[in-house]
């Protein structure tokens, strides 16, 4: 009964100190050429009807930065990634390009379809894990430490080769479905002293302001993203850990089974939205 009275208040138009919420009505076309799918119908079984990119929840200025690749600060990391791609490292005397040649051909679509089942490892691999695997097995180089500047730049570069392509992962291979199930459980489990799950904020209240933050659906299609607040690229697992820490909970290690499961599940939740890497966020 109390709840009914309350939802009445919620629907009142809020004036004064509250900022207007909801996704902005806008279209993202990068450099006037590349059309980005920022709104799309959700796949079957998705709890939300329409999927909306986090881009719609940012200010006009932030949205404009992403629409112009000359102004997008994340593009510097794409350039740095291209350098790394062509740089020989490790005992085998190879670069990424030695095996994969022109990234604009060989890496096209890769960023849109990861995480992907890795049979030998018996778990899903994201781009970062695949890069480390290549470095160790094929280049004789050391794996990157989590969030090393080069790891972020190379991941950004590889994902950028799929710019505009819709996110779509294959859940039919290996045990992907089990990892999806586990990720879903993580998504709905409340953590920390504040007792919040991912779903509490991103499913229940997207479009609303939580103090100065405009809650989006928490989609992953822009990662790694350039965050103006940090003036740096932010990896997906860094973002996951930040959101979990904000519930006043301990957060799991990057690339741990629970965060890999979460990545599989949340990537599925973003199905059909275009890859925006490097997206620009607040």
């Amino acid at each position: 009964m109390a709840i009914c009275a309350i939802s009445g208040f919620l629907s009142l138009a809020l004036g004064g100190t509250v900022m207007a919420g909801g996704p902005a009505d806008d279209k993202l076309v990068i450099d006037g050429e590349i059309e980005i799918i920022t709104r799309t119908a959700a796949p079957d079984g998705h709890p939300l009807g329409e999927l909306i990119s986090g881009w719609h929840y940012r200010t006009e200025e932030t949205r404009a930065l992403e629409a112009d690749s000359f102004q997008n600060p994340g593009m510097l990391y794409v350039e740095r990634g291209a350098e790394i791609w062509n740089t020989v490292e490790g005992d085998a005397g190879k670069s990424c390009a030695s095996c994969h040649e022109d990234a604009s051909e060989t890496m096209k679509g890769v960023g849109a379809s990861y995480p992907k089942w890795n049979e030998a490892a018996g778990k899903p691999f994201n781009i970062e894990l695949q890069i480390n695997e290549c470095r160790e097995a094929n280049m004789g180089a050391k794996p990157y430490k989590f969030d090393a500047a080069d790891q972020k730049a190379l991941t950004t570069y590889i994902k950028h080769q799929s710019l505009g392509m819709p996110v779509g992962i294959d859940l039919s291979t290996g045990a992907m479905q089990e990892w999806w199930d586990k990720g879903k459980e993580v998504y709905y489990t409340r953590t920390g002293q504040l007792n919040l799950a991912c779903a509490t904020c991103h499913e229940g209240y997207n479009g609303m302001f939580i103090r100065a933050d405009h809650l989006s659906q928490g989609n992953v299609n822009g990662f790694p993203t350039y965050r103006l607040k940090q003036a740096d690229m932010v990896s997906l697992h860094n973002r996951f850990r930040g959101c979990i820490r904000d519930t006043r909970a301990e957060f799991p290690p990057a690339f741990s089974d629970s965060l890999m499961a979460l990545e599989v599940y949340v990537t599925w939740r973003s199905s059909g939205l275009s890859v925006e890497t490097p997206a620009v966020r607040q």
């Binding site: 100190t17 919420g21 302001f209 103090r211 809650l215």
Partner: peptide
């Protein structure tokens, strides 16, 4: 608390 910036809208006023 008008003097404070950024009031959220997740709950009712």
């Amino acid at each position: 608390l008008k003097e404070q910036l950024f009031h959220g809208e997740v709950g009712p006023p």
